[in-house]
């Protein structure tokens, strides 16, 4: 099962190392964006958004369509984020806000219903077959050669975007008035509202921010993954693993855990191809046993 030779060869070949690291980072950054939305929403609203993968999928499809219409990938990525944010506000106001503070099974049920509805809606609008966007025109350039490995320019863009967006969200949550209010309301919504603040609007906006992160991840994934109804499920499960390993409510934790998981995936595909998923769940189990709040988590958002 363990392909020690292959692993050793790859780890000692710079080209292979560069290729595996880049593809690990791609996986990791997409996971990071999705997971930071999960973690933000949980940290503030104390609700696990089981439907988060749907917003990732919507972001990918919105980006796909806007790219087809305009040929401008940057516009397409923005549309993925904004479209997912709008869908998120609708979902939050109409559906999930009604089960805040309720039994988690109730929340799961409501989210599952939403997932099915959105998957079917995507089938109706875009069809059930696989769609491929391909590398956008802006990035059809020769790959960079780094230590013998090939790094496509779009990959660099993806990683840079994820880091910038991650830092941006961290800034919004820790430094802006919006972030201060939302973090205070996470602990004591009734006191925040007694100070004159319309807490439900802030909660809806926070939810939208989380969905925008999933949407932009979908838009960034569209050129490198195939689009299919139901594509949100796999990344949802993995982003939960990231959230648990990194610590609920911690964006830096999500970043760290996503990189660990991404590299495990890409290097594992060489070294232990049959045990990649197993390794991820094993890491999660170890974290839950030895550090239940996650690597950088403190329980809730602070």
């Amino acid at each position: 099962m363990l392909e020690i030779d292959a692993l050793a060869t790859c780890l000692s070949t710079p080209a292979c190392l560069v290729n595996q690291t880049t593809s690990g980072l791609i996986i990791g950054m997409l996971l990071f964006l999705v997971a930071s939305g999960v973690t933000l929403i949980f940290g503030v609203l104390h609700v696990i958004n089981f439907a988060h993968g749907s917003f990732y999928m919507l972001g990918a499809y919105f980006a796909f369509t806007v790219y087809q219409l305009t040929g401008n990938y940057f516009l397409a990525a923005a549309a993925g984020a904004v479209g997912a944010a709008i869908a998120g506000i609708v979902f939050e106001r109409l559906i999930i806000s009604r089960v805040y503070g309720q039994n988690v099974l109730m929340q799961l049920l409501v989210c599952y219903a939403f997932i099915l509805i959105v998957d079917d809606a995507v089938k109706i609008v875009w069809g059930a077959e696989y769609l491929a966007m391909g590398i956008p025109a802006e990035f059809r350039l020769p790959p960079y050669r780094i230590a013998g490995g090939f790094v496509p320019p779009f990959y660099l863009f993806l990683v840079a975007m994820a880091v910038i967006i991650g830092l941006g969200s961290l800034y919004v949550v820790t430094k802006t008035r919006f972030g201060k209010i939302v973090r205070a309301a996470a602990h004591n919504a009734s006191m925040v509202s007694a100070l004159g603040i319309r807490v439900p609007i802030y909660f809806a906006l926070l939810f939208a921010l989380g969905c925008a992160l999933a949407g932009v991840a979908g838009a960034l994934a569209a050129p490198v993954r195939s689009l299919t109804p139901g594509m949100g499920l796999g990344i949802l499960v993995e982003s939960f693993i990231v959230t648990v390993i990194g610590g609920m409510g911690s964006i830096p934790g999500a970043f760290l855990a996503a990189i660990i998981l991404g590299l495990t995936r890409s290097i594992g595909s060489v070294g232990f191809p049959l045990f990649v998923d197993g390794a991820m769940f094993m890491m999660m189990a170890l974290v839950l046993i030895f550090r239940p709040t996650g690597l950088l988590g403190q329980g809730t958002l602070r």
Binding site: A184, N188, A194, L195, I197
Partner: peptide, 21 residues
């Protein structure tokens, strides 16, 4: 309120800023 309810994780200045209007 009688039980004060400061936002314990926020700085004093951030507590004040949240009340600002």
């Amino acid at each position: 309120p009688e039980d004060r309810q400061v936002f314990p994780m926020h700085s004093v200045e951030d507590n004040l800023a949240i009340g600002a209007k």
